[in-house]
């Protein structure tokens, strides 16, 4: 494979690589994902080359929607009346109506039917392990929903849609991609292990092993390496940092591993996954950072331990608990 000897700049000059970086297609995605699988030591060069290419962002002037619409009217009217030598645009009502219909038609034509899916949902406090027909194992965290495309084992692309949090152990399948769709991005892999969390208006992906790629029309492709965490927010900003993956998937064993985790984050997690509402008489406690392990399976047990750690008294309130 010629690419196995490429350096960053050679990638940056390669037309096929550039076309993938600027306008990925299913074929080119598959090619470069497979390349990364076969030559994992090239991940850094590829990541860098993608970053280099990103530098060349030229400013562009966005055309006004109105201008484009007007231009379209001009063109379509000229097409319909080709004999008229000089053209003047007049906003005739029936033309507007016709264009609305045209737009509806075009819109309808673009509309793509969502494939039929199987849906799994979990209530508060329950974790479910799902074995998919292709051998992939998904651990679905509490209060989450996973939609799986029908006949996943026979499809050319294995697709699922996630809301909430799940840990994926994707079975290797030669040349058949596995895609996790989230509101903010899509995670594409061939076979690997990773955690995806879409709670709180962002998608957080933590990669335990292998290669994954984050793809979206609105942010650039991100190639992730093991031990990295990517956070995609709804404004399409992407943050990438190095983390300890086990801190992010210990929920599978109903354990909360804290590594300098602020109390506020633990409160969020308990609310997200167990529907447990925790209040604090002294709000400065929320900024306190904790380290260690907490068992969260048994709620009473958790509350007792948590109040000991925080050195606070526990009171039952109408809908939750108050620490004071």
């Amino acid at each position: 494979m010629q690419y196995s000897h490429y350096d960053v700049e050679e990638f940056c000059k390669d037309a096929y690589f550039i076309s993938w970086a600027t306008s990925p297609t299913p074929d080119s995605d598959l090619f470069w994902m497979s390349f990364l699988e076969a030559y994992p030591h090239k991940a850094e060069e590829i990541q860098l080359a993608l970053e280099y290419i990103k530098v060349f962002r030229f400013s562009e002037n966005e055309p006004d929607e109105q201008d484009l619409l007007r231009l379209k009217h001009r063109i379509w009217e000229d097409i319909e009346k080709p004999s008229r030598p000089f053209y003047q645009w007049r906003p005739i009502p029936y033309l507007a109506a016709a264009s609305v219909i045209l737009f509806l038609l075009v819109g309808f034509w673009f509309y793509q039917k969502q494939p039929s899916t199987l849906t799994y949902t979990t209530p508060y406090g329950l974790i479910q392990e799902i074995k998919l027909a292709d051998g992939t194992v998904v651990t679905l965290n509490a209060r989450s929903e996973l939609k799986v495309i029908e006949n996943i084992a026979e499809n050319k692309v294995r697709e699922v849609w996630l809301q909430g949090e799940a840990y994926f152990k994707v079975s290797k399948s030669k040349d058949v991609k596995f895609i996790v769709h989230t509101p903010e991005t899509q995670v594409e892999v061939l076979g690997t292990e990773f955690n995806v969390n879409t709670r709180r208006e962002k998608t957080q992906v933590v990669l335990a092993e292998g290669n994954v790629q984050l793809i979206s029309a609105t942010h650039r492709n991100i190639v992730m390496r093991p031990g990295q965490m990517a956070i995609v927010k709804d404004d399409n900003q992407v943050q990438l940092k190095t983390v300890q993956p086990q801190l992010y998937d210990s929920w599978k064993e109903s354990i909360l591993i804290m590594d300098d985790k602020p109390v506020s984050e633990i409160v969020e997690i308990m609310n997200d996954t167990y529907g447990l509402k925790l209040y604090f008489a002294d709000s400065s406690l929320l900024n306190k950072k904790l380290s260690g392990k907490l068992l969260v399976k048994d709620q009473n047990h958790f509350l007792e331990n948590f109040s000991i750690i925080l050195n606070a008294n526990l009171e039952k309130t109408q809908d939750g608990y108050l620490f004071r």
């Binding site: 850094e44 280099y52 990103k54 650039r220």
Partner: peptide, 15 residues
């Protein structure tokens, strides 16, 4: 990977 990546990320703003 992170620091140069981030350096270069500074140049990138979605359109």
């Amino acid at each position: 990977g992170v620091s140069l990546g981030s350096l270069v990320n500074l140049f990138f703003l979605p359109l």
